[in-house]
Amino acid sequence: MDRRPETLAAQALHHIDAETGAVIPPLHPATTFARDAGNQLIGPRDYARPQGPNADHAAAIVAALEGAKAARLFASGLGAASAVFETVAPAGHVVAQSRMYHGTRKLLARLAATGRITLSWFDPDAPESLAGTIEPGRTELVWIETPANPSWTILDIAACARAAHEAGAILAVDGTCAPPCTTRALDLGADLVMHSATKYLNGHSDVLAGVVATRETDARWTRLGEIASLSGATPGAFESWLLVRGLRTLFVRFERQSANAMALARALRDHAAVSHVLYPGLATHPGHAIAARQMTGGYGGLLSLRLKGGFAAAGKLAASTQVFIQATSIGGVESLIEHRKPIEGPDSPTPDDLVRLSCGIEAEADLVGDLVAALDGL
């Protein structure tokens, strides 16, 4: 029988260990696998670096949730993104949005500076500029992130896919901030979707991993697998096993995180110390209508505040909360707060006054009360 994604995730694809009957998948720390007397492999693999049993299981769950033909795990989100960019031909043309997760932005700028790729930026706040930035017959890859960290700008995945495909390019989507419990980018026309699995997919701030899922198992996908194996950018067995554990609660975590973020956004939007609340779930957000179409399972637990007091107020707020923890990352069960500009550096386009919030699964009243009290003290 067909099962809904919530069931597939919760049961880890209805996994039952064939040897013991255990309903929790076993951990396979082995790095090498035996052959029989005829020098034939006993199982499907000889070595763990290409992808071990636990990584295979985690990738299969992600592929099922994304509606993908296949998925592959990497040692981190940036490792996954790097592998995608490595599939581009030498000096191939890549188009990417100018404001997004600062790690990927720095990676792309570095690849362009070394001549590995040629790179053009487009303004995500003027998405019509994408079509003018793509060069038909020359652009090979279009890279977008939606919602974009930490501004939470929304891009129309289907429209971006059409623009890329009409020019002969492919579309890759960083879906870290919109996991498949709310957005399935491949269904909207994307060719590849990448996640920092460290964030929502694992959700417990104890795994470093990345994943790429594909709409087609084509030549580029084959190259991606070769790159993963030859670069060694693959996760260990324990990290992969923990990721399976995290994926089992993805849907319920995301629902609670989305509810907490919505409550915060509504409570803080009229606070005297706040100039802007950036959250795609608010009807006043410029990308709300697109987000409502794309994010069918909730708008997520991520929002940002811009403060009237500027840089100093942002730093003070991040250091003043008692429930929110001042730390870097997103998507975990604990709520985090961060003044982003000092983290990203002076070249970042992130405003000086922006504070990023990642809502966890704590009591809504505690989160709202904590932020209101900290803002009142500015």
Rank of each mutant, 00 (worst) to 15 (best):
E19M: 14
V368M: 11
A83S: 10
A89V: 07
L8G: 05
D174P: 04
A327S: 09
T183K: 13
A81Q: 11
Q257D: 03
D56V: 14
G345L: 10
G168F: 05
E216N: 12
E128W: 06
V207A: 08
E145I: 10
E86A: 15
R72E: 09
A112M: 05
R266A: 15
G310K: 04
V274S: 02
D123Y: 02
A91Q: 11
S229C: 14
R293P: 04
D270T: 11
G43W: 05
A131C: 09
A80D: 03
A12D: 03
A327L: 14
G79Q: 06
A12R: 11
P150N: 05
I170C: 14
L264P: 02
T114V: 14
T139N: 01
M262G: 13
V368T: 06
I117L: 05
A327Y: 06
N149D: 13
Y47H: 13
F74E: 06
T321Q: 10
R266N: 12
A37H: 05
G43D: 08
H165T: 01
W152A: 15
R293S: 14
V95N: 02
P150L: 07
V88Y: 00
K341M: 00
P180S: 12
A265L: 02
L282M: 07
R99N: 09
A169G: 06
E362K: 13
A37V: 10
H14L: 14
D2H: 10
V355A: 09
F122S: 05
T284M: 12
G310R: 01
A167P: 02
A374Y: 03
L305Y: 02
D191C: 08
C177N: 07
G360I: 08
L367E: 00
A167L: 06
S240F: 05
G92L: 01
K199Y: 04
A267T: 01
E128S: 14
G79V: 11
A172R: 02
A18F: 03
Q51R: 12
F254G: 04
K308Y: 01
D17G: 13
S275Y: 00
I170V: 15
A113T: 08
A312I: 07
E216Q: 12
A313M: 04
S120N: 11
I134D: 04
D156I: 04
A228V: 04
H165R: 11
V368P: 04
